[in-house]
Simulated assay, not measured.
Amino acid sequence: MKHTEHLYEKTISSQTIYEGKVVKLKVDEVLLPNGKTAKREIVNHQGAVAVMALTDEGKLIAVRQFRKPLEREIVELPAGKLEPGEEPLACAIRELKEETGYEAESFTHLSSFYTSPGFADELLHLYLATGLRKGEAQLDEDEFVDVVELTLEEAQELHRLGEIRDAKTVVALYAWESRKLHGQK
């Protein structure tokens, strides 16, 4: 998409502050549309996928895990970051299997969205997985999760209680509610 001149911020300089396994942090100096300059702290991220896996019985497969930035457990969709050059669908298939043990007959792309565009460029791809077959999870060595199955009503209650709080799972919850309202699975 072409930028609109009266909104565009031109990069004058860019400095990488940190480069880790998951993110890169940089500080850009930008020229604002009014001629002044400002600093922008930017997190670069490879991108990620999340999977809204629904059983034939209409239950959501989710994971409960501890999230260090929050210092608490939350319930969320199985998800993970894209490897360099990896297609989002391949990542969705891999992450569902690794985190939950489930495999799916069908994957449907529901949406792609920026998770926090005020400071990060992470683009998350949300997939619906159906026709599930249960198997053994293959968690990464630093990954610890409990797999949970939730009805829509149970997921809504966990959202109300603040146990579902992350953007990808909240977006999926609203997508699931919308699908049910329109007579879809």
Results as ranks from 00 to 15, higher is better:
47 G>R: 07
44 N>T: 14
87 E>L: 07
41 E>V: 12
71 E>M: 14
84 P>W: 12
78 P>L: 03
61 I>T: 12
31 L>I: 02
72 R>K: 13
37 T>M: 06
31 L>M: 10
61 I>A: 09
74 I>L: 06
79 A>I: 00
61 I>Y: 09
52 M>G: 04
54 L>Q: 12
69 P>C: 03
49 V>H: 08
41 E>Y: 13
81 K>L: 01
68 K>H: 00
93 I>F: 11
84 P>N: 12
65 Q>D: 10
36 K>C: 08
47 G>W: 00
80 G>K: 05
56 D>T: 15
61 I>E: 04
47 G>K: 07
85 G>Y: 03
57 E>D: 15
54 L>P: 11
22 V>T: 10
78 P>K: 09
23 V>E: 14
28 D>P: 09
24 K>Q: 14
58 G>C: 07
87 E>Q: 10
70 L>I: 03
26 K>A: 13
35 G>A: 01
47 G>C: 03
85 G>K: 05
88 P>W: 02
41 E>D: 10
62 A>T: 08
57 E>T: 15
75 V>F: 01
50 A>I: 04
76 E>T: 03
27 V>I: 13
43 V>K: 10
80 G>Q: 07
54 L>V: 15
41 E>F: 09
80 G>S: 13
54 L>T: 10
77 L>R: 02
21 K>V: 15
22 V>D: 08
87 E>N: 11
33 P>M: 10
34 N>T: 12
37 T>K: 12
72 R>S: 02
44 N>P: 02
50 A>D: 08
87 E>S: 13
38 A>M: 13
52 M>R: 11
67 R>I: 13
38 A>Q: 13
50 A>L: 01
89 L>T: 02
30 V>M: 09
77 L>P: 12
23 V>I: 14
84 P>E: 14
30 V>A: 11
50 A>Y: 02
71 E>R: 09
79 A>P: 00
53 A>E: 07
64 R>K: 09
53 A>R: 11
59 K>Q: 15
49 V>I: 12
55 T>R: 14
65 Q>I: 11
31 L>R: 12
90 A>D: 13
24 K>V: 15
60 L>W: 01
46 Q>Y: 02
56 D>A: 13
57 E>A: 14
54 L>S: 06
40 R>D: 04
28 D>N: 10
40 R>G: 07
76 E>P: 00
84 P>R: 11
86 E>P: 01
55 T>F: 11
93 I>K: 14
40 R>S: 10
